[in-house]
């Protein structure tokens, strides 16, 4: 369970560029929840993710994961139990290392004890990697000795997803992780995400600019504006909601800024939905 209480973050404090990125944000995510987050650019979605994963320390407030206070735990320690995928597929993998070595890093992060730093990947682990890669259905299991830099963006993002979930995380943060991919590949990565998350009941938060996706995926939808959560729907209320309802709700929450945001929040359907 993730708990954020009254979290505040202001960038460039005391300068003309001062920007309140998170404004007394409070949020509770239950175990097994799949939360989608929408909001215009600069609404604070990515900032929220960075606050959770420790990209910076917040100015005020409490962040807890499974009852443990992680407000001032450094990023590399949090990433032991928080998986984070970025929009840029190049960010999540080391290009000059092989697929196998990348997976080994992701896998070994779970090893504990005093010999953890000197632990190595065994033959059996490599077999497990091969099986996991085969699940991606991209033929990567036969290219384990290839450097990751040779893969396409979609393949790299799929691999990053696999690495983030190789050891089941307590929380998975997906920051528009399909936005930089072509529609076909984006679909594939998305269905892969859906499968992995539901199979293992991973608690997951996903930022998207696609309103259809926001309602179709997961069990709860948040809308952010100006560093605040302006809409939080789940259950029946969410089930009966359409994209237009969502836009109307957004107008209530954010007032006049809707006109700008209608452009930014794409209502375009994904390829698979069009096919159906």
């Amino acid at each position: 369970m993730l708990k954020m209480i009254d979290v505040c973050k202001t960038f460039h404090k005391g300068t003309v560029n001062e920007k309140v990125a998170l404004d007394h944000l409070s949020l509770t995510v239950k175990d097994g929840d799949f939360v989608t987050i929408i909001g215009s650019n600069g609404a604070g979605k990515s900032t929220t993710f960075n606050a959770i994963c420790g990209g910076f320390f917040v100015d005020e407030g409490y962040i807890g994961l499974d009852g443990e206070d992680i407000t001032f735990v450094p990023e590399h320690k949090r990433s032991k139990y928080i998986g984070h995928l970025f929009q840029d597929p190049m960010k999540g993998t080391a290009p000059n290392m092989t697929i196998e070595e990348n997976l080994a890093i992701a896998y070994l992060r779970a090893s504990k004890g005093q010999h953890a730093y000197l632990s190595r990947v065994s033959k059996k682990d490599k077999e497990n990697f091969r099986e996991a890669l085969a699940q991606l259905d991209m033929g990567l299991e036969d290219r384990m000795k290839n450097p990751v830099g040779l893969l396409s963006g979609g393949q790299r993002q799929a691999l990053t997803l696999l690495m983030a979930t190789l050891v089941t995380p307590k929380l998975l943060l997906l920051d528009e992780h399909t936005a930089a991919l072509d529609p076909g590949t984006a679909d594939k990565v998305l269905s892969l995400t859906r499968r992995i998350v539901s199979e293992r009941g991973i608690t997951c938060m996903m930022v998207t600019h696609n309103m259809n996706q926001a309602l179709a995926l997961g069990n709860r939808t948040l809308m952010m504006n100006d560093g605040k959560i302006v809409l939080d729907v789940e259950g029946e209320e969410r089930a009966g909601m359409t994209v237009n309802d969502l836009l109307a709700k957004f107008a209530q929450g954010a007032g006049s800024e809707l006109d700008n945001d209608r452009i930014l929040l794409s209502t375009q359907k994904t390829v698979s939905e069009q096919k159906n």
Partner: peptide, 11 residues
């Protein structure tokens, strides 16, 4: 190789 990846891999 990739400092961004390192930080999100508990290194």
């Amino acid at each position: 190789d990739n400092i961004a990846m390192v930080k999100s891999s508990s290194i």
